[in-house]
Design a protein around this nucleic acid. Structure first.
Lengths: 206, 206
DNA sequence: ATTTAAATACCAACCAGTCGGTATGTTGTC
DNA sequence: GACAACATACCGACTGGTTGGTATTTAAAT
């Protein structure tokens, strides 16, 4: 009588639902029932797949990070030969992602870590680790760009990568406060201009 | 027998407690009892001063914004004659605030709006309004600096002010994810360098 | 004496997590 | 290929503790 869906699909559906619900309401305010309802499943199924609510959050963080990794690793801008083009392409690509409703394009990791960093050490660590991985991906391009265009610059590659990520996280916060992504797009425009100034390929200034 | 504190002091103590508790745990995970305990008062007193938990959050947002307004309005860097010095002084001043534990220097408004923007319209509006006021304060200096040093710049004063605020909010998120403010300080260093490049007073480049 | 401030006791709703049970594969054996 | 024996997936009612909020009472201040 109960309509059964493809096996092993339920866990993914719960994770997809968690992504939407937690990004909309935050971690603490998201109830297990909310997630179950959004996934079209019941609590029995939920606790079959996840030990606890925090276990779900940890799995959702992994799931979100894995999806993001794939998204950026296969994005067209990655094909650019010049590392600066890849960095600017990254920023442009992120601007292109700012579409639809806020819960659909904001960062699960930034949302969760802001409210759990003091109370849920394992969650903080997971968010920090995944964000660090993403920053490391950026840092590789920044380091290469630095070698090519700014070998004597007074800044480190990892601080630039971290800065890029900070601007993005801040843009999400401001987008939520302002009720839309317009300001975030302008902020990414400033980030782009800054990156261009760091790796000036026209040679007009030293 | 009950030790009574100065009248009208209790409400302030609840607000101070709310600032600490909400910045540490977030809005949803902060219980009224948590706040009462941190303030050394009981729920009876709490609901005498505040209609509801959301009313507390709204009042705390006002309280936080008023304190911040005073702090920045009276800060030494405000005395600088040149608007660019005031902007760079603002960034330096904010770096100086990154001391002590994370809940003590992070932004209540950014923390709350991230988890309530979809579910608590009044809270989102309050956070958005106060953040907008702060951005407007910055915008005044940016506009003056633009008139003096970059009248033909392709960017608007308000987008720069918003960018400054985005970098700060993002720096807070990353500080939470990384467990310390070191990276945030580096990010503000990049912000400072960008602002210097926008208002180049040395005249070496166009 | 009236108003304001604060304490105690309490409640109804809610929520994470449990439990007994059912339906659906899967595997090994003859 | 029939059939146990077992494992996996899922359901939905239930529970014990928590939480926002209320009702009642006490005490101080003017």
């Amino acid at each position: 009588m109960t309509t059964r869906i493809a096996p092993h699909d339920s866990k993914t559906r719960i994770l997809d639902a968690a992504l939407q619900v937690i990004r909309a309401r935050g971690y603490a305010a998201s109830t297990v029932d909310d997630v179950c309802h959004a996934a079209g499943l019941t609590k029995g199924s939920f606790f079959h797949h996840f030990r606890s609510k925090e276990d779900l959050a940890l799995s959702a963080a992994d799931y979100f990070a894995a999806r993001a990794d794939r998204l950026f690793a296969t994005a067209p801008y990655r094909a650019a030969a010049d590392p600066v083009d890849r960095l600017l392409g990254y920023v442009d690509f992120r601007v292109g992602l700012l579409r639809g409703a806020l819960p659909q394009f904001t960062c699960l990791l930034g949302t969760m870590v802001q409210e759990t960093y003091e109370t849920h050490p394992a969650l903080r660590a997971a968010c920090g680790r995944h964000m660090g991985d993403h920053v490391a991906m950026l840092e590789a391009d920044v380091a290469e760009a630095r070698r090519l265009y700014a070998p004597d610059a007074p800044w480190s590659a990892d601080s630039v990568a971290l800065f890029i990520q900070s601007v993005l996280q801040g843009a999400f916060v401001m987008a939520k406060a302002r009720g839309g992504p317009e300001g975030a797009i302008e902020s990414l425009g400033h980030l782009r201009r800054y990156l261009e100034s760091l790796f000036d390929r026209s040679g007009r200034c030293a």
